[in-house]
Every structure is written in C-alpha cells, then in structure tokens.
Design a protein around this nucleic acid. Sequence first.
DNA 1: TTCAATTTCTTTAGGCTTCAAGCAATTGGC
DNA 2: GCCAATTGCTTGAAGCCTAAAGAAATTGAA
Lengths: 164, 164
Amino acid sequence: MNLDSETKAVELPEDHGDELRLWLRLLTCTTLIEGAVRGRLRERFDVTLPRFDLMAQLDRAPDGMTLSDVSKRMMVSNGNVTGLVERLVESGHLDRRTLVSDRRVQVIRLTKAGRAEFRKMAAEHETWIADIFSDLTPKDVRDLMRLLAKAKGSAQKAASRRAL
Amino acid sequence: MNLDSETKAVELPEDHGDELRLWLRLLTCTTLIEGAVRGRLRERFDVTLPRFDLMAQLDRAPDGMTLSDVSKRMMVSNGNVTGLVERLVESGHLDRRTLVSDRRVQVIRLTKAGRAEFRKMAAEHETWIADIFSDLTPKDVRDLMRLLAKAKGSAQKAASRRAL
DNA sequence: TTCAATTTCTTTAGGCTTCAAGCAATTGGC
DNA sequence: GCCAATTGCTTGAAGCCTAAAGAAATTGAA
C-alpha cells in the first residue's frame, strides 16, 4: 500500500515552498536588473525603459510592425502601446502610417533619427548587461538559458490550461 | 604574441549577445508569470499585485515595519509606498501608527482582517506558482535557485561598482 | 447583398511608479 | 544650547499600465 498516493488523493496541502522561493528570487533578480538599466538609460540618454523596449522591437523589424504585433511581443496591453507610440511619434523617433489595404491597421517604423539614437543606446546597453552578469561563467549562462526556457514553457502551458 | 589581449587593449567591441539574450529571457519569464499572478489575484480576490506584495512583507513581520523598510524590501520608491499604504489603510487591511520615540517614523501592521484575507490569498497563490513551475524537476528548481543567486550577487556587485 | 461577428485601435477611469523637491523630526559636532 | 546635516516621509508632475468599453473597418455566412 502506497501512503503517498493515498495522501495525495485526499488533497492534503502539499509543500510548494521551493517553487515559491524560486519565483521570489526570479522576481528579485529581474527587479534589480531592471532598476539598474532604467537608471542608466535615464541618466545617459534621458529615455525610459518602455520607450527603449519599443524601439528595440522596431529595430528588428525594418518593415515595421502593427500596434497589435508590438503589444503581443512586449506583453503589454493595446492601450499601453497606443500611448507609448503617440509619445515616440511626437518626439520624432517613430513614423506611423495607416495601412491602405486595411484602414484599421497602423504600421509603425523607426525614423532614421530614431534608429540612429537607438543603435547608440543599444551598444551601451549591451555592455551594461555584460557587466551585470560578469560573475557568471559561459556555462552558467548556458545553464540559465536552458532552465529559463524550460520554466517559460512550463508557465505558458499553465497559462493555456488556465485559459480553457 | 597574444592577439586576444592586443584586441582587448584597443577596446574592440566584444560580443555580449549571450548575456543580452539571457537578460531578455529572464525578463520574459518574469513578465509572463507576473501577468498570470496579477490576473488570478484580480479575478479571485479583486486585489492588485503591489497590494498583495506589500501584505506579504507585513505578514512576515508581526511587529510591523516602517515605510522605509518596506520600500527597501520591495525595491520601490518611498513615494510609491506612501500611496500604497494609504489605500490599504483606507480599505482596513493595514494599521498605521506613528512611533512615539521618533515621530518621523510610521509603523504599519496587518490588521486582523487584513491578515486573515492575506492568508487566504497566499494559500491559493502558492498553488498557482506550483502549477506554473510544474514542468520543472526538483533538481531544476535547485539549479535555478543556485544560478539565480549567483546572478543576483553579480548584479548587486555591478550596482555597487556603479555607485562609486 | 446584408449584417452580425471579429479585428484593430483608441479612450477612460483608476491605480502604480519614478524622480525631484519639500517638510518635519532627529542627531551630532561645536 | 545651537544649528547644519541627515533621516523618514509626503507631495507633485509626468509617465506607465491595465481592464473594460467603445468606435471604425473588415470578414464571412446566410
């Protein structure tokens, strides 16, 4: 007779403290790094992190993106993107035009100035990240990549289960 | 003659793409999980994530905390905590009193109702996290804990270097 | 064709967050 | 005691963010 499976069958509270501690540690790491990056972007380039992130998405899409694409990629709400884009168009970093074949759709691109500005920021940004992770060996980095990929997959699966 | 060290000496751009990808993956994981937790807290308990986080800090501190303590622990600004606490006092979850020995200091605690409410939420919250990480083996969890601890240390060291 | 459903984006209300400036209380050097 | 520096918190301005409701354009089934 298997006591463990009996125990599970009656839904006794299980211990998930390790997973909880993992989540808190993950959150701490991200918050820490995010704060450092935010501060440096601000003092060096007077730009906010969301603006930088949006420009990063567009830098990889020379043909532009729709607002919905951006929203999915950045995992933020549509309304959020609307406001963000508005300010970046205003400041001359972004170009926005309505798609002729579907007038609901707005396609946004980096302007020439916006791209130049972003490239300058991105180059420095990369060195900050390297500095932040400088105690990690190449193997640490590989292991983390692999484990985080697995964690991401697990989280996505959980989310899709939830969506049913 | 060592070409590599020559190369470094003239500051040629090094490749830090792996570290950058690691950071993006870390951010993606956190954003994904944070969104899931936020949504569940909202639909199940009609509470926001920052409120939950603040109550979690206080649950571990039966004797209460000062606003500065909370601010450091949560890694958010002082002004942020002021507003958050204000709303939670208003809703009856928190009790706030001025320290007699130093009238600048506010000590906040969970009220009885606040603590009961939090315990209920925390129990469910733990199962959500377990579900989100359910594809990870116990070894994966241990490895991630260890590597993230190392990453956190590295980030903190970088931040303190920066602060000089 | 027609119109209900869907998609894309915007708007609104409310809350979160930062930074910087400011106020009040305390501390420490003189 | 005096007062300059520090500490703890609040305020204000600006921006970020979400959820929900709504407007405009498109699609597709009858």
